[in-house]
Computed example of a mutant assay.
Amino acid sequence: MANISRRQFLKSAGVAALAVAALTGCKKIPDTDIPDVPEVTSVDLRVLFVDEKGNPVGNSVTGVYETTVLKDAKKYDPKLIPADKLPKGYELISEDEVDIISESTPKIAKVPVKLEESKPASQSKVFVTLKFFNGGVADRHVEVIANKVFDLKSNPNERVCYADIKDSLLAQCKDIEPDETWESYLKIVDGGYEATVWMGVALKG
């Protein structure tokens, strides 16, 4: 390459700067034709969701969250991820900051997630007396689980119905045909609630 003078170099730099300024609309440094380009303070970051073993979770859409971080950041805080941006049905394994992999473009951060823990349904223990329509069969007292929480202090007239205890009742009493229209008031007893009305049932067969 032929040698160029300092004057020619500055002239060339000025032309290039003007071109940049025209494209970007940047202001010029006072008394020069050089654009005043703001310093870049943030860069793109691609958050990749992974499982406990580091395997990808989700696909190219659900398994990725695009954001920005300070260009010199070394760590990323997973708590900054909006809940609706996590893969559906997953939650953070930890809220600890994770390393940012700066060798790639954009930068990458791998955030471990796990399946959300299923929350148990609100339940109450209910004691029910079963009276058989079949002659000669003794009453049966059963302890069942109702899929709801009762609050007799606020509502003394609250009632339990067959649908509330159906699953628990049939799981332990497979030989009965219950009255599906049954419902009863309750009273508080040790360990739970007692139905004040017995349930009529028949033995199968």
Results as ranks from 00 to 15, higher is better:
27 K>R: 11
40 V>D: 15
13 A>W: 06
160 V>K: 02
79 K>H: 02
112 P>S: 01
146 A>L: 01
183 E>P: 09
152 L>K: 01
113 V>T: 08
184 S>Q: 11
185 Y>C: 00
184 S>V: 06
116 E>A: 07
196 T>C: 03
108 I>G: 04
71 K>S: 12
152 L>G: 01
176 I>H: 01
34 I>T: 12
156 P>F: 00
142 V>S: 04
130 L>Y: 11
115 L>I: 13
30 P>T: 07
3 N>I: 03
200 G>T: 07
79 K>Q: 10
50 V>K: 03
140 R>I: 02
67 T>G: 03
104 S>V: 02
196 T>Y: 02
151 D>R: 01
59 N>M: 02
119 K>D: 05
176 I>N: 04
105 T>G: 00
170 L>D: 03
169 L>C: 05
140 R>P: 02
150 F>P: 05
184 S>A: 04
126 V>D: 05
37 V>W: 14
71 K>L: 02
34 I>Q: 13
71 K>T: 05
192 G>Q: 04
170 L>E: 04
12 S>Q: 12
114 K>Q: 13
133 F>Y: 08
182 W>I: 05
138 A>S: 13
123 Q>S: 00
53 K>I: 00
41 T>R: 15
94 S>P: 09
39 E>C: 04
41 T>D: 15
128 V>M: 01
74 K>P: 00
134 N>D: 15
66 E>R: 13
90 Y>D: 08
33 D>A: 10
203 L>W: 08
7 R>W: 15
189 V>T: 10
85 K>S: 13
170 L>V: 06
47 V>I: 15
99 D>N: 12
66 E>F: 14
182 W>C: 01
154 S>L: 00
144 V>F: 04
58 G>Q: 12
26 C>R: 15
143 E>K: 13
191 G>W: 01
144 V>S: 04
26 C>H: 15
109 A>V: 07
21 A>P: 08
20 V>D: 14
116 E>T: 12
122 S>V: 05
184 S>L: 07
7 R>V: 09
110 K>G: 01
76 Y>T: 08
107 K>C: 10
17 A>F: 12
14 G>V: 00
57 V>N: 09
103 E>D: 14
117 E>Y: 03
39 E>L: 07
130 L>T: 14
80 L>Y: 10
66 E>V: 03
108 I>N: 04
31 D>E: 15
7 R>M: 05
119 K>N: 10
136 G>E: 13
124 S>K: 04
157 N>E: 14
23 L>S: 12
85 K>D: 11
68 T>V: 08
26 C>V: 11
104 S>T: 14
99 D>V: 10
190 D>K: 11
48 L>D: 11
67 T>V: 06
92 L>Q: 02
135 G>K: 11
90 Y>M: 07
136 G>D: 10
193 Y>S: 02
39 E>D: 14
26 C>D: 15
194 E>H: 03
112 P>W: 14
16 A>E: 12
138 A>K: 12
40 V>R: 15
55 N>Q: 13
136 G>F: 13
66 E>G: 06
3 N>Y: 10
111 V>N: 12
38 P>A: 03
42 S>A: 07
21 A>D: 04
107 K>W: 07
186 L>M: 00
201 V>G: 04
129 T>R: 15
120 P>F: 00
148 K>H: 03
14 G>D: 13
184 S>F: 03
190 D>N: 11
